[in-house]
């Protein structure tokens, strides 16, 4: 379950980086206002290495629009997958049969 939660968090953190179109060189003004520019730069360091791979794949598929939005799609998908596995792991405790079959009299 820890791996699933880790996947969810890792992919969730990937979403803002993808939303920035995989480029943290010119962070939006919001980052400055909130004093979270280091966070933006950190995201670039963590995920930046895969940017070229994503771009190459999406360009080979002739994807339209901003490429980062497709990566966001992948990230939210992975986050949901992690959440699903974690929820299922927690919920499987309820999987035991609780119904008592009536005893024939």
């Amino acid at each position: 379950m820890a791996a699933a939660i880790g996947l969810c968090l890792w992919a969730s953190a990937m979403m803002p980086w993808a939303e920035l179109d995989m480029n943290v060189d010119n962070l939006p003004h919001t980052f400055k206002l909130l004093h979270i520019e280091p966070v933006g730069k950190a995201l670039g360091e963590i995920y930046g290495g895969s940017a070229d791979k994503h771009k190459t794949h999406l360009e080979s598929q002739k994807a339209e629009g901003k490429k980062g939005e497709y990566v966001y799609s992948l990230a939210i998908g992975l986050a949901l997958l992690g959440a699903a596995i974690a929820i299922a792991a927690i919920g499987s405790a309820d999987d035991e049969e609780k119904m008592t079959l009536p005893e024939k009299k």
């Binding site: 339209e64 799609s73 997958l81 699903a84």
Partner: peptide, 20 residues
């Protein structure tokens, strides 16, 4: 959890097979 997995599949297909 099932809904999330379904969404994951759809989002992944969007990434791997974007509309051209």
């Amino acid at each position: 959890a099932l809904n999330y997995i379904l969404m994951t599949i759809i989002f992944a297909v969007v990434y791997f097979f974007p509309i051209t």
